[in-house]
Design a protein around this nucleic acid. Sequence first.
DNA 1: TATTGACCTGGAGTGCGCTCCAGGACGTAC
DNA 2: GTACGTCCTGGAGCGCACTCCAGGTCAATA
Lengths: 123, 123
Amino acid sequence: MKISDFSIRSGLSIDTLRYYERIGLLPRTARDGGGRRSYGADDLAWARFLGKLQAMDMPIRERLAYSRLRSEGDATLGARRAMLEAHRAALVARQDELHGLIAALDGKITHYRDRATQSGDSQ
Amino acid sequence: MKISDFSIRSGLSIDTLRYYERIGLLPRTARDGGGRRSYGADDLAWARFLGKLQAMDMPIRERLAYSRLRSEGDATLGARRAMLEAHRAALVARQDELHGLIAALDGKITHYRDRATQSGDSQ
DNA sequence: TATTGACCTGGAGTGCGCTCCAGGACGTAC
DNA sequence: GTACGTCCTGGAGCGCACTCCAGGTCAATA
């Protein structure tokens, strides 16, 4: 698969794909005769998983650490699982935080609604 | 209140306080005889509210827009409420997204657990 | 065969959100 | 009255995560 197709299918821009390869987040991609990148199905699965880690707010340094572990093979399965579990805990914490923030926001919105034409401080 | 105390009580660094004032997120703070900033209780409420908007991932441009509305007085109450309601919807959407991502992560973690000593691709 | 369009590389530029720095002023403690 | 700590300003620098650009190569198409 050439980079333009891979970009569409992975959801990552062409520039981002080259950038990720440069920093080692994606392994050095296979090339065709003319030196152009040629992606396979396994590359797609990995790129999509990276996309998910990004959607989970995992910073690029951590994704890079995970990627390095992955490149070291099965010996690092435990370490990778530990990273995912730690990140899972962070996501759950963030969910809880959002819950509280939404509640606070609801209070504020209600307050605004109540004083639509009155005075007082609403920030 | 001087800036060092206000920094502690608001949770914003001294540099951040000055930066926010520079870009107009905090109104020009009152000064004492020597030209130093002198904060009041209302400043504190506003700074803390800004902190909450930040914790809600509201980008600085939006916080700035909100801040400008606030400085225009009660005429903008409706617009401010609309902003908060829009942001609330974004937070709820993000909560839902996190829910799905955590579920996906759980699948991955379970997969890792199952193949602790086996072969196969786990990303 | 000439042109077009997609691709390549290395490196520069961007936007966000601060954070740090130099050089200077003030006010309190000794 | 001088030393010290805290403050001031304007501006530079930084880390993140891309995004864009110049200058060049290559393959297919007209």
